[in-house]
Write a protein that binds this DNA or RNA. Sequence first.
DNA 1: ATATGGCGGGACAATTAATGTCCACCTATC
DNA 2: GATAGGTGGACATTAATTGTCCCGCCATAT
Lengths: 340, 340
Amino acid sequence: MRKIVDIQKKLLPDLLVVMEKRYDILRWLYLSGTIGRRTLATNLNMTERVLRSELEVLRAQGLLDTAAAGMTLSESGRQLVEEMEPIVKEMFGLSDLEETVRSAFGLKRVIIVPGDSDTSDHFKMELGRAGSRVLRDILSPGDVVAVMGGSTMARMAAQFAIPSQLKDNWFVPARGGLGESVDYQANTIASELAKRTGARYRMLHVPDHLSEEAYQTIMQEPNVREVVDMIRSARIVVHGIGDAETMARRRKLVDETKAELVKDGALAEAFGYYFDRNGKVVHRMATAGLRLEDIEAAGMVIGIAGGRSKGEAIASVMRFGHDDILVTDEAAAIEALRHV
Amino acid sequence: MRKIVDIQKKLLPDLLVVMEKRYDILRWLYLSGTIGRRTLATNLNMTERVLRSELEVLRAQGLLDTAAAGMTLSESGRQLVEEMEPIVKEMFGLSDLEETVRSAFGLKRVIIVPGDSDTSDHFKMELGRAGSRVLRDILSPGDVVAVMGGSTMARMAAQFAIPSQLKDNWFVPARGGLGESVDYQANTIASELAKRTGARYRMLHVPDHLSEEAYQTIMQEPNVREVVDMIRSARIVVHGIGDAETMARRRKLVDETKAELVKDGALAEAFGYYFDRNGKVVHRMATAGLRLEDIEAAGMVIGIAGGRSKGEAIASVMRFGHDDILVTDEAAAIEALRHV
DNA sequence: ATATGGCGGGACAATTAATGTCCACCTATC
DNA sequence: GATAGGTGGACATTAATTGTCCCGCCATAT
């Protein structure tokens, strides 16, 4: 059954909202017994006319009976509601979890995909797809998007698909180069996104970690300066979330710094910063890329991460409090809630 | 899985066509490899713009990739098509059978519901619902509808549901009263339909079987005459189909007539007439209701009958050749095809 | 090397559908 | 018999869909 639901989600994403709308109507009728059109419209937060069109469909299907005193579910309508319960749960079941997570961390929006990214690549792909959909939906003409690196971000970029070309958007890497695989570089991801959408991109050919001296020198370069200015003015920031230890290893931090991080209780990494369990930044450094103040100033910060093992790190970064949207999976969401 | 499909058919009847459309597109792409928009539009019999809107959705879902040489299914699109095969079969699987029956009997349209009416009342209900839907769809303002009696017709009437009131339609009984339960009288059914739709109706208070003498007398009555004229001018005729023996018993025909029917090879009954295996009328009589010539002249004749046991009778009446639409069930359809 | 046919994507007027809003009239209930 | 709340009809306004053309691009055949 799950399969058919998944297929429909892919094939008819625009129609799922209709389904939900109709189900809501039936469900309300199921609970209210007889009720009038206007009352129903108020309760369901619809305008009268829209509700009416839906009611006409439902009536034509013989799911509801109309009398002068109001409308009632017909026998087959009642039956349908009862049979639908588990299916709706399957289809929209994560919405409850989404709402719980959203309010727990005070976010604007939470998207949860089914599964656990730790267990299968399939779920990682789905996470990427979900992330790309979110980004697509909030993208407005003229937006500059700063993207971080990482495998999740790379998958997001690979799954990005839009109905029509973007013309006046920019994708920029949020930070400089890291000693990692080229596929996971922020630079690579920015260019991939731009290529897939017809948007433009800039690259930041600068190492992420700089001495203060080198930083000052390189910022003198006009073309670096220009890109950095654009990065810092990004309206949208998209980033992954890692656990501190893994990231420290990947970044090839010296043992000394690692020990310091452990001492400070660093748990999570995001935007190149390390966070402790309370979402406090425990390690920061000079960077040519996005600084914390730019993140705070950005209009829309989107975090993407999944897998049970990342739950705690996600909770930590969310407590930092500057994310607007979180895209995660079921397992990570549940785990994150344990660390609120 | 069948359940979820059934539910969707009830809840989202208008959206199934969209689903089919999108599946067709994907399937064609699947088979063609790379293909252009215009070529695709021609093949699928869609206009370019409509196809394009759908393609945009599919592309946004990451189901297809676009290049300068044309469009191709993406990996996940390919996967989707393969996974959908059985589901589509489930959803639209009877369409093939419908087409086979349609062309076998030279009908305008055939609707087949799943199941076998002989085995469960549930399927009889579904048959009625399907019939009522067909009638609703072909009903135009001003139409006069002549309905026959019978249990199938009664169920059809009971399931009739429309989005908005009919104002200038008439429902009339196709024939006079039979010695049967009042619920199954044509009169009852016509009035039920009218009540459910806000349309008007007339009754024919005349026994179905009349001596020539009585016939002449009663037709002198102006109000009978008026109703009969309306009946005979009906644009739409809806009728059930029975097997000859059962109907002869119900009609309380004298043994002599029964024997004659057997001798003539009467197999099926419809519109009050008896048909042999070749669809030839083997028994006719004076009636105040619809005569054969009226049926031949009617714009739209709809037959509704289901159940394996009725298969042969259905085939016989269809060979008579004046039906336009047949509404039946899976079992009856298969059986009917064996007697083409 | 070059011509050409078919490609996707952009644009836009015309048409069709959806929507908000009012009102007439009906029916239970107090 | 008044009243509140119901349905169904009507319609101007707004939004979406649709048919149609055209442009520049690329792959292929010449």
